[in-house]
Amino acid sequence: MIEIRKLSKWYGDTAVLRDCDLSIRKGEVVVVCGPSGSGKSTLLQCINGLEPFQQGDVVVDGIHVARAGRALPRLRARLGMVFQRFELFPHLDVMDNLCLAQRRVLGRTQGASEDKARVLLDRVGLSEHAGKYPAQLSGGQQQRVAIARALCMDPICMLFDEPTSALDPEMIGEVLEVMNQLAADGMTMVVVTHEMGFAHRIAHRVVFMDGGRILEDTETAAFFSAPQTERARLFLSRILSH
């Protein structure tokens, strides 16, 4: 469903991505991990064209992202994205946050988008909060709304960019619970995260990045029991010792 081939990207002289290859099949849950600054988030943002890249190909559902042009907004609408800092629109209440793109991008009616929004708010356990503004919600609640907002668009795949790293520890659980449910329902997911417990339980594959390169791309069990590279071993031992 997503094919990344020989993807490279530079900021001026510094390479942030080097020759990355990755393919994601329908229904797969792939966790991308690695030290900070390794290019994980950039890789994710290249998938829906938020970041331009200089070399290589990103193909989503048969469409070349770099050459999508005017079709890019439509393509993005089919990929749900969840951000580290939630990025709900603070000037709109929860219901409007959920309905905005449904109406503007998918052309749904107000009624249809509100029905859809209610179903998904219920799914993330926030039905009573439809009329509130983002700043009136806790971080965990905001992130669940953000997930619901992305799901409203009926995405073919969900991209998560460190969805729990801006959260207080006691709120991480509620967000991961929603993501577990999503994976169980068969959603295709690419998750950039440091939550190794989540990766261990849910992911089909783990991708390890460092210095802009993909160093490992293996079955979850294999990654945790016997990482192939020294750097991945070091990373795991550091993160698991906490």
């Binding site: 907004p73 439509r74 993005r76 609408a77 994205m81 951000f83 629109f89 793109a101 991008v105």
Partner: peptide, 8 residues
């Protein structure tokens, strides 16, 4: 980014 990611 969030607005663009939603397809706006």
């Amino acid at each position: 980014q969030a607005a663009l990611a939603l397809g706006l």
